[in-house]
Amino acid sequence: EDGINLEEIREFAKNFKIRRLSLGLTQTQVGQALTATEGPAYSQSAICRFEKLDITPKSAQKLKPVLEKWLNEAELRNQEGQQNLMEFVG
């Protein structure tokens, strides 16, 4: 629908959760960090719904690039050390 690749979103949601957990981050931490930079659309409950795919494809499509960018950045910081990650997450 609307050129939205559901399979891709499903895959990303699954990987997002795995990668988030491997960084040792909670949904709350991700939500707080993103709410600070991106606004309330990225709250803990939004992250939770995204991971469960309990949102419309359109919403998922909107969240995905922001979550992807944030997660990549978080992983980079983590490679530089846990301290850097925690500063990034705030």
Rank of each mutant, 00 (worst) to 15 (best):
E1W: 05
E1L: 05
D2T: 14
G3C: 14
G3N: 15
G3H: 15
I4Y: 12
I4E: 08
I4M: 05
I4L: 02
L6A: 09
L6G: 07
E7I: 02
E7T: 01
I9E: 00
R10K: 14
R10C: 08
R10H: 10
F12W: 07
K14G: 01
K14E: 08
N15M: 12
F16T: 06
F16G: 02
K17C: 00
K17M: 08
K17W: 02
K17N: 14
I18Q: 15
R19A: 03
R20I: 03
R20S: 03
L21R: 13
L23C: 03
L23N: 08
L23D: 04
L23I: 03
G24V: 02
G24I: 00
L25V: 05
L25N: 04
T26F: 00
Q27H: 08
Q27F: 04
T28F: 14
T28N: 10
T28C: 12
Q29I: 00
Q29L: 03
Q29T: 04
V30D: 00
V30Q: 02
V30G: 03
G31A: 15
Q32C: 10
Q32R: 13
Q32M: 10
A33I: 10
L34S: 03
T35D: 10
T35Q: 11
T35Y: 07
T35H: 06
A36D: 10
A36E: 11
T37E: 10
T37N: 07
T37I: 07
T37C: 09
E38F: 09
G39R: 00
G39I: 06
G39N: 04
A41E: 15
A41D: 14
A41I: 03
Y42A: 05
Y42C: 06
Q44H: 11
Q44T: 15
S45L: 08
S45A: 12
A46E: 13
A46S: 09
A46D: 15
R49G: 07
E51P: 01
K52F: 01
K52W: 00
L53M: 15
D54H: 03
D54N: 00
D54L: 08
I55C: 15
T56F: 02
T56V: 06
T56D: 15
T56C: 13
P57G: 11
P57L: 14
K58V: 10
K58F: 14
K58A: 14
S59G: 11
S59H: 15
S59W: 10
A60G: 12
A60I: 03
Q61E: 14
Q61I: 13
Q61C: 11
Q61N: 13
K62G: 06
K62L: 13
K62W: 05
K62N: 04
L63Y: 07
L63E: 00
L63S: 05
L63A: 09
K64D: 02
K64H: 01
K64V: 12
P65E: 10
V66W: 00
L67Y: 09
L67P: 08
E68I: 02
K69Y: 01
W70Q: 03
L71N: 04
L71S: 05
N72R: 11
N72W: 11
N72M: 09
N72D: 14
N72S: 12
N78C: 11
N78A: 15
N78W: 09
Q79F: 01
Q79L: 11
Q79E: 11
Q79D: 13
E80T: 09
E80C: 13
E80Y: 10
E80Q: 13
G81H: 12
G81W: 02
Q82T: 10
Q82D: 11
Q83Y: 11
Q83W: 06
Q83G: 12
Q83K: 14
N84F: 06
N84A: 15
N84I: 02
N84T: 09
N84R: 14
N84P: 12
L85M: 15
L85Y: 04
L85W: 08
M86R: 13
F88L: 08
V89T: 12
V89D: 12
V89G: 13
G90E: 07
